[in-house]
């Protein structure tokens, strides 16, 4: 078990990062810390993808010096997926930050439990 983990230390680190981010996103009460957790979780996934796509001794798939064998290059798809994932992650972070700002302006706190308690006492129609 330990031997497998050490041999695949990049994947192991990625899963640990994912777990740390996941638990922070789910269980932390502070909105900003939740967002940081989300970004750590996404980074874990990106690390997993990047480590899958990297093969020692191979190069980026740009033909150099006429070398055309597939075995000389890495698969470019995981890198493309990471880039797409980063774009998605940034967009989601921006929306969440704007929501946090709006909540802070209204309730003057970023603690979700406090916000929930404050909102329960508001009288709102429909």
């Amino acid at each position: 078990m330990i031997r497998h983990l050490l041999a695949n230390y990049e994947e192991a680190a990625a899963i640990i990062l994912f777990a740390v981010g996941f638990s922070t996103l789910l269980f932390h009460r502070n909105l900003i810390k939740k967002l940081i957790g989300m970004n750590i979780m996404d980074t874990g996934t990106f690390l997993l993808l990047a480590s899958m796509g990297y093969i020692r001794g191979r190069k980026a798939p740009i033909i150099e010096n006429g070398v055309q064998e597939v075995s000389a290059y890495i698969n470019p798809v995981p890198a493309g997926l990471v880039l797409t994932g980063i774009v998605v992650s940034v967009s989601v972070t921006a929306v969440m930050l704007s929501l946090s700002v709006r909540l802070y302006k209204r309730y003057h706190t970023l603690d979700l439990d406090d916000i929930y308690n404050l909102s329960k006492h508001e009288k709102e129609d429909r």
Partner: peptide, 12 residues
């Protein structure tokens, strides 16, 4: 306020 809070919880 309730909608913003609901949106945050939904997003999380």
């Amino acid at each position: 306020g309730r909608t913003t809070l609901a949106a945050v919880r939904y997003m999380i």
